[in-house]
Design a protein around this nucleic acid. Structure first.
Lengths: 243, 243
DNA sequence: CTTCGTTGCGAACACTGTACGCACAGCGGA
DNA sequence: TCCGCTGTGCGTACAGTGTTCGCAACGAAG
């Protein structure tokens, strides 16, 4: 055998690497947790079963003992982060706007914290039925019912659609920015000339691209944009409250 | 040479297969058009450069003479279908609601006609700047400006977010249904027991899953749901019109 | 001690997107 | 007529991907 041979399976039994007892072997929970960590760190296309296995000191195919398929793993990851979303409780029916605003902001915050979520939602929608997402829906339903809405599920669908649409767009934008390696303001500044040239000939669009505030504080501008649309939706819903 | 050998490169020059003159070789437009056809027919994960090349009587790598990368091809495909979206023109400022409703319905219609669009939007957002999407934005901006809105771009972002969120969710749902091979009503009926069991213990959710109308005419129900939320958004916007 | 169900995993399969370099077509100029 | 030159097609290859299969090792149960 040549000395440069690859490490070989080590045929001796007692030389086998014992699994550290504090690293409690492989489990569904550990797999999902580590998958979320990898997704957050490196984005959705960087997650592969092999890399995930390596990170858990395991072979790629070992994961399939605890998870049927990669799609199922993604479903579990989605429900994992769904646990983060906070929904304020409603005591007095009058404060429903503040409570819904909090619930919406909570969704947006997790969507921006885990930008891969938008990709998964675009492919699979909300058909998950995971327990944490169910619980989120339930608390939203309780909130709208307590507020006195005659059709709480309609109201939920409306505000959720707005929140999902805006958060998805924002998350995709942030992903693009992150891939460029620049700060958000720097990326906008570099994009401006191309955008303005593309807007040439579209008179009504020109105004949107001369906004200098985008460069000074893009985060605040996005926050404000989200709040504006949410207030619009809540105003429209308020008209449907009885009395 | 054995008779069962693979077709071999055919070393004779005059036996080369001449390209039919009505199939005008490979071009960017033809590639994008065929890619959209494949995406519509078989969904997003069925599109591969090799299959697309085969469909155009070309090798996989030939496509790269006209398209830099698969991502760029997807951008082009998105802009291709964006050309379908119709936006009504606005003569009288009073009919802005009908016009916006038409533009929103147009977006939703194309999103449901090409369900892969939602997946791409989830991953890349609206950062495309393709000419057809630009033109759609421009016509929307013209519409809201003519209607007299003080902040047309804010209004656009709000209604677009709602429309994208709802359409994305619907498209993902329809994709799931299509994969099951059943009709929408049949799929719902088969899903009902699982959903009701999952809703057990969530009192406020139970009501949503006893709705029998979903099984009789799910299409009309989705239409109505979309209209409800859109009306909410437009009501909220109307409050911001001067006077 | 034997048996059994569970867990880990190495090898393999069928694919994927894409880089590279060669073959050839059409063409303008010598 | 020949010579490059440029643009197009494509065969091969590489580095990955998700997933299946069969084998090896284990802890607990009988």
């Amino acid at each position: 055998m040549p000395p440069k041979a690859k490490p070989a399976p080590l045929p001796s039994v007692w030389a086998r690497e014992q699994r550290a007892p504090d690293q409690p072997a492989l489990s569904r929970e550990a797999i999902v947790r580590e998958a979320v960590a990898m997704l957050d760190a490196d984005g959705i296309e960087a997650l592969s079963m092999r890399k995930l296995g390596a990170r858990l000191n395991a072979g790629a195919t070992s994961l399939y003992r605890h998870v049927a398929t990669k799609d199922e793993l993604m479903e579990l990851a989605v429900d994992e982060v769904a646990a983060e979303i906070r929904v304020p409780e409603l005591q007095d029916g009058k404060e429903w706007r503040a409570a819904v605003t909090g619930a919406a902001a909570g969704f947006r915050a997790t969507a921006l914290r885990h930008p891969w979520l938008s990709s998964v939602l675009g492919q699979a929608g909300l058909a998950y039925l995971g327990p944490n997402l169910m619980s989120y829906s339930e608390r939203l339903a309780a909130l709208f019912t307590a507020a006195g809405f005659p059709e709480p599920s309609r109201a939920i669908d409306t505000v959720l659609s707005y929140v999902i649409g805006m958060s998805t767009t924002e998350a995709a934008w942030l992903t693009t920015v992150a891939r460029s390696g620049e700060t958000e303001a720097g990326f906008i500044a570099r994009l401006m000339p191309a955008a303005q040239q593309a807007a040439a000939g579209h008179e009504h669009l020109a105004g949107s691209y001369t906004d200098a505030a985008a460069v000074t504080d893009p985060v605040a501008l996005r926050d404000e944009k989200f709040r504006y649309g949410l207030d619009v939706v809540l105003d429209g819903l308020a008209l449907r409250l009885p009395k």
